[in-house]
Nucleic acid binder design. Structure first.
Lengths: 335, 335
DNA sequence: TTGTATGCGTTATCAG
DNA sequence: CTGATAACGCATACAA
């Protein structure tokens, strides 16, 4: 690999001059810069990022915390889309993305924070993790620039998918189509789930509806069997709902694919998913759902993170809510 | 951040001794090692990976090339599962994973190879990319340890999902259920597609069947509309197939979700997907498909890559075929 | 406008 | 068994 000293030798300039020329120092005249850059290109020179990191304490590398848990790993389209968008934005701004881990390095186990410091990471994006894990909290409170998705830590910027708006949009859609008895099967208790339940209940309240508590069912995200199990008793209620909101699109599609013509005729049930995964648009009937704007979430997260890194003085922690949009679809039917 | 010299000061030993003790050099006695490690732990010492990389020319960092193309980005469950497995395996062996890019760094654009060298990457995993892109070829032929998925470069180890076996398994399943007129709508022309077509035709030949060429349709992966469009004329043939293989599960599920009871009665068509995404197991009827073993593919890829890095003398490029398994499902029906 | 010298944290060589 | 010293590639304070 060509290094600065090679360029120095070739051009006759000193290392210092070459370095300055390469980094656009104002003290170097255009002509010198041109010569240096030309030779640099000829030699295929690329700066050694680790040498640079050592000297400058800047790695242009961001850590991504992405722990597969509660079935919400890389395979969850919501998260993988966020990551995809984050990757694109980071690349655009000249940063790399490295997965965080707590591997043993030379025999010494390390925490996320130690890993981050060891690699000289300039900042951290926490996409999916157990936010109550002490190791994650430590990372968030370390003073390192951290941006979180769908969870707020004191002092950190958080990008939140607008779950209240999501539930409200779905509710309004169902209400407008004549539904008054609406059930909601939510996922396991997480921060996001709480927001969704609150959004759901608020929307009901706004319309003066008081829904029986039996209309709330608990299940797990991305585990349709648990959702179907929770749905069962609700449909058996003396006064069953006419519409049900599922915790995610996977459950909703599962439900759709399990419904027989027979069942539909006996018990016509409207329903909606949540997330807006690609498949919901392709199937007939199109799934009614709320499309989370994962692309914008990932993009904004990286944007805010890098802005803080590059100009810390301007930094003030904020909570950014990102709205998605309703996909009307055909599974909430007029009533 | 505590550094070696801090430990040296605290223990009274020199930097050199501390470094050796930490790295398990045989010349340092147990007692010294114990003291040093104790203090290291107390100070929360973690080695600076970039300083280490600079000196040792080893980063313990692997590049992952993952380019979103032909709808096959991170959101494709097959690829994200591979990545997930790779991530787990890499972490287990003490390596980090960094996404490859060709960002401009200090104003200079760089190739994938330059990026890899700049970051001192020890090896590269190519999960999804345009394998004909000169920049990708350059990377593969650079001499850097490279492992590819589903594509073979001369001199590089490749991990291949067994597409021949996949198509053969599906064919056997359909044949056993009485199907003789089987169509295959494949994805756009890629290496993988060629293998699948070959596997399909071989299986037919093995049974002495000669299928009309009109039974082969071309579409795009993960774009169900194109698949449905390709299916249309096939179903209109004077002698239409009784069973059709789709290029992927997404298309198959789309087809399933679009079929009305009506259509099923008029034109009962058996069909199968490909990939084995989670959703296929959850729906009723369960989708008949071939489950690619993405987890093993990702794990083996990293394993082979690190083995080569850690003992290059033992390296010999190989092509590893990873078999998946048939998921019988219910969408190929007896005939 | 350019060059010299120093240090970032680590490991490796060689001498004690 | 331990330590002094150099070197990895780069950026920068300071000197010329």
């Amino acid at each position: 690999m060509a290094k600065i000293s090679d360029i120095a030798k070739r051009t006759g300039y000193s290392n210092a001059t070459v370095s300055k020329a390469l980094n656009g120092s104002p003290e170097i005249p255009e002509s010198t810069v041109a010569t240096v850059k030309k030779v640099a290109r000829e030699l295929g020179y690329v700066p050694s990022s680790f040498a640079r990191t050592l000297k400058m304490r800047r790695s242009f590398n961001l850590g991504v915390l992405f722990v597969d848990q509660t079935n919400a790993g890389l395979r969850h389209e919501y998260f993988s889309s966020i990551l995809e968008a984050a990757k694109v934005e980071a690349e655009k701004r000249g940063y790399d993305l490295t997965f965080m881990s707590h591997t043993n390095y030379g025999g010494l186990k390390m925490s996320y924070l130690q890993h981050a410091k060891s690699r000289g990471m300039d900042g951290i994006l926490i996409v999916s993790a157990n936010f109550l894990d002490p190791a994650v909290e430590e990372l968030a409170q370390s003073g390192l620039p951290v941006v979180t998705i769908d969870y707020v830590y004191n002092g950190c910027t958080a990008i939140m998918s607008d779950n209240e708006n999501g539930m409200n949009s779905l509710f309004e859609a169902a209400y407008a189509l004549g539904h008054r008895k609406i059930a909601f099967i939510h996922g396991e208790e997480t921060d996001v789930t709480k927001r969704r339940i609150a959004g759901f209940l608020q929307a009901a309240k706004a319309h003066g509806l008081s829904l029986p508590s039996a209309y709330l069912g608990e299940a797990y995200y991305h585990r349709p069997e648990t959702v179907m199990a929770a749905l069962e008793p609700i449909l058996r209620l003396p006064d069953p709902p006419t519409c049900v909101f599922f915790p995610d699109d996977i459950s909703a599609i599962t439900f759709l694919a399990r419904q027989t013509q027979e069942a539909k005729r006996i018990h016509p049930l409207s329903f909606a998913g949540y997330d807006g995964i690609d498949l919901t648009k392709m199937i007939h009937p199109m799934l009614s759902t709320y499309v989370q704007n994962s692309e914008e979430i990932g993009t904004i997260a990286i944007d805010k993170l890098i802005n803080r890194i590059e100009d810390p003085r301007l930094f003030v922690p904020e909570v950014v809510k990102v709205k998605g949009h309703l996909q009307s679809g055909d599974t909430i039917q007029k009533r």
